[in-house]
Structure formats: structure tokens, C-alpha cells
């Protein structure tokens, strides 16, 4: 990526400027370093890392299949409470540990080793919730990355074109964006899914479409200032084509706010996808998807709280991770906050 011109945009930013230029590495590396100086961002990174790990290795970690029904095989009732084997061989025989173990056992946190272990219990269909939670990380991450990715690409193209060429194109594109923004995002997403039919792909598309205007606006506002810069004027004077200027000059210099917006947008996308699938609009009801797991068992809130607790917790962690990283990135990339 061509980033050699980056600081030019910030030329007038004032006395914070020299310090920024003195640090080693490109803007991105600096930004990352800045970001992870904050503890909250580190926490976000760790959670996200864990989620990524879970998503990647779900089939290896999960003791059961995503849709494996255990009613007939293990003789357990659906919605059986969690069963955790605490007395395992590999725990060292230390008094403290064994005391803790017997305390937990006495309080119903452990279960006899002849009962099959289910860390998070069974769901209403007699499937292992722990395994489904793990597989759910895949669905959630893939879908939210897909949704944000598509929205960023579309929003960037639209914003670049609108901002760079201005005039009538700008007017048309941005008015369409305004129309999209006029609807509450979730409502519009529901409308889109209803029109196209339920399904994970359509849900991703819907969440994506409703966020395009946000990215388009962010990019456009940057482009409006970047296109007036001297280095763009220089390129123009040299007869560089519009396309080349857009891709090699304007785009790289407009990316920083977009990255922040996209990271925070991931959190929103996770939530909106969960909401759509809570409403039964995100495709196959059997797919391990946290929002769906929550919705199907919501009436068991008081009788089998584990069925609602774990999916809810995972959605929260996922959103939290992206929000923490997003906040950190924003602070790192915002020139006014650099001191």
C-alpha cells in the first residue's frame, strides 16, 4: 500500500506533527502501537484473538458436532443442566485444589464422572451447547466480516467517486445515501430480508446495505479535503489520470477514519445480525448462531438459564471486543488526540 504521502493531510494540524513523524515505521504500525498501549484495547484484542481461535479450531475443540442430537444416544433430557467433570486425572494432587474441588462438588458444580460431560448443558433439542457456542463463533465472525467488508467496499467506491468528482454525481449518490440513512437501520434490514427471503446470506447483505451510507459519508468527507491538497494538484499538473489519482493518492489518505469506522461497525454488525437471527430471519434455524440460540430458548429463561446465558454472553463479548479495539484505534488515529 502506498502510504508515503500520509502526513500531508495533517500538515496544518500543528505542533503534534513533528513528534508523529519522528516515530519509526509507517502510520499503521504507529497506530497499532499506540492502540495497544491502551489496556482496554489490549483486552479487546485478546478477546478477539480468542474468538478467532475458537472459530478457526471449532471442529477440533468441540466435543460434539454442530447439529449432533444426543437424545437417543446418551439418554439425557433436552435442556439438561451443565455437567462438568472436576475430578480429572491431570489436575495435580494439591490440597488447595482438591479442597476447591470438593467445595464445588458440594455446591452442585460438578457431576458424577459416569454422566457425559457437557460444559454448558444441552439445548432444547438435546444438543451440546458448548459445541454450538464454538461453532457459533464461526457464523458470527464470518457473517460480520462479510457484512462490514461488503459495506466498506461499496461505501468507499461511492464515497470516493462522489467526493472526488463532485457536482451532479455527488448530489445523486449522497441523496440516495441520505434516503437510506433516513430509515432506522434494523427496520430497513428487516425490510430487505423480508423482501429477499430469510437466509444468512440475505441477512448479511441487509446488514451490509444499511451501513453503506455511513462509510460513504466518512470517505467522502475526507476526499473533499484531500482532493484540494497540493500533491493532488501536482499529479493533475503532471497529467496523471483520475483513476490513478483516486487509487494512489486520495484513497490511501482517506483510509484512517474508515478503519476506525469499520472496526466499530463490526460491533454493530454482530448485534444486528444477532437481532435478525433472533427474529428468525437469518436462515436455517438449526445453524449454530448465537442470536438464534437465544431466541429459540428465550422462554426457558427461568427454568434453564444456561441456554440463554451463554449465547448472550458470547454476543456481548464479541461486541465488546470490537468496540474496545475500535475505541483504541480511534484514539490512536485521531491527530487531535495525539500528544
Amino acid at each position: 500500500m502506498a502510504v508515503e504521502e500520509i502526513p500531508l493531510g495533517e500538515q496544518q494540524a500543528g505542533d503534534a506533527e513533528p513528534a508523529l513523524q519522528l516515530e519509526r515505521g509507517g502510520l499503521w504500525r504507529q497506530a497499532l502501537r499506540q492502540t495497544f498501549r491502551k489496556r482496554s484495547a489490549v483486552a479487546g484484542g485478546v478477546i478477539l484473538g480468542l474468538l478467532l481461535f475458537i472459530a478457526l479450531f471449532a471442529p477440533v475443540i468441540a466435543p460434539y458436532g454442530e447439529r449432533e442430537v444426543l437424545i437417543a444416544t446418551e439418554g439425557l433430557r433436552p435442556r439438561a443442566e451443565p455437567c462438568i467433570h472436576l475430578s480429572v486425572d491431570w489436575i495435580p494432587d494439591v490440597p488447595v485444589l482438591s479442597r476447591a474441588e470438593s467445595f464445588l462438588e458440594a455446591n452442585g458444580f460438578s457431576c458424577p464422572s459416569d454422566r457425559p460431560q457437557h460444559l454448558m448443558g444441552l439445548d432444547g433439542n438435546g444438543r451440546d451447547v458448548f459445541s454450538r457456542i464454538l461453532y457459533g463463533a464461526r457464523t458470527s465472525l464470518v457473517a460480520s466480516v462479510g457484512a462490514v467488508g461488503f459495506a466498506v467496499v461499496c461505501g468507499t467506491v461511492l464515497g470516493l467517486v462522489a467526493g472526488f468528482f463532485g457536482g451532479r454525481i455527488d448530489n445523486v449518490v449522497m441523496r440516495v445515501m441520505d434516503v437510506l440513512l433516513a430509515f432506522p437501520a434494523l427496520l430497513l434490514a428487516i425490510a430487505i430480508v423480508t423482501a429477499r427471503g430469510p437466509g444468512l446470506f440475505n441477512a448479511v447483505l441487509a446488514v451490509s446495505v444499511v451501513t453503506i451510507p455511513v462509510y460513504a459519508r466518512v470517505i467522502r468527507s475526507r476526499v473533499l479535503s484531500v482532493r484540494e491538497q497540493d500533491f493532488v494538484a501536482a499529479d493533475r499538473a503532471l497529467g496523471v489520470s483520475n483513476a490513478r489519482i483516486l487509487v494512489h493518492r486520495v484513497l490511501p489518505n482517506s483510509l484512517t477514519p474508515l478503519v476506525v469506522q469499520a472496526t466499530l461497525g463490526m460491533a454493530t454488525a454482530v448485534l444486528e445480525l444477532a437481532a435478525l437471527s433472533f427474529f428468525g430471519l437469518a436462515g436455517d434455524p438449526d445453524t449454530a448462531e448465537w442470536g438464534r440460540m437465544l431466541s429459540v430458548e428465550r422462554n426457558q429463561l427461568f427454568t434453564s438459564p444456561h441456554l440463554v446465558f451463554y449465547p448472550g454472553l458470547m454476543i456481548m463479548l464479541n461486541v465488546l471486543a470490537f468496540n474496545l479495539i475500535g475505541d483504541g484505534l480511534r484514539d490512536a488515529l485521531d491527530p487531535r488526540l495525539n500528544s
Binding site: 442430537v69 433439542n125 434455524p285 429459540v296
Partner: peptide
């Protein structure tokens, strides 16, 4: 009383 669960089970 539990349509989604029964549907999943019938499919299985």
C-alpha cells in the same frame, strides 16, 4: 408447544 425444537428433531 415447541415448534422450532420439534422441527429440528423431525429433520434429525
Amino acid at each position: 408447544p415447541q415448534p422450532p425444537q420439534v422441527a429440528s428433531d423431525i429433520r434429525d
